[in-house]
Amino acid sequence: MPLHVRAPVQDAADAAWAALGQAGAWWTGTERVAIAEAARAAGPRPLWDRAPDIASASRHADGDDLSPFLALLVERVAVGPATLTRDDVQAIAQEIGDAAYAELASIVCQVVTIDQLAAALGHDFRPLPSPQAGEPTQVRPDGMADVGGHIEMTAENFGPNVGRSLSLAGDDHVRWRELVFTMYSGAEFFEMVWDSRALSRPQVELLAARTSALNECFY
């Protein structure tokens, strides 16, 4: 019997997927789909097998393809983010813009979430959306500040810092957060006892901690 996710999860995934093909704040629909494609192609390889050398890669793009530099950047964010230092990210941000970097990383997060869910459930990956015409809005979210991370994020925060990590990405960050909200804790993050779900909170946190350790994520 096929496995189905709840309606809020499906809705959040549908919204994220539809927006991938539309122009964002800093990337066109064509570029966003290319970023999504590169994130998918990066695959689930172990993080330590290589960290792509992006510094010397060509900045020239052919047609609708990403430049080798951007393709390797997507790959590094997708499978080697633990290797990114503040200096690395600030050099990248100086070249493409800090908000464009945040949007790129946020697209990667959305694709990885949805693809990983499909893989875990034994489902096929969704076809990527067709790119839509339109120009990036170039709107930078208000209220950003340097709070000690690699990039700026919202000065105001409620809850764990990861909740504002890519807030510089604006709408894409909101869509990714909705995926996280519907698929993980909902409104019960601060509740240590979950008694209305199939899994207990400790069971969920074991999965979470084991996955984070496999990703070698210190945070």
């Binding site: 496995l3 997060c109 990885v112 990983q116 991370g149 990590s165 996280v180 996955t211």
Partner: peptide
């Protein structure tokens, strides 16, 4: 399904945390 969702979410939470520092 909840287990699959958790693994998927934490894969991307780790990316968000590490890529943003």
């Amino acid at each position: 399904v909840e287990a699959a969702q958790t693994v998927a979410v934490f894969r991307s939470l780790n990316i968000a945390a590490d890529s943003s520092g």
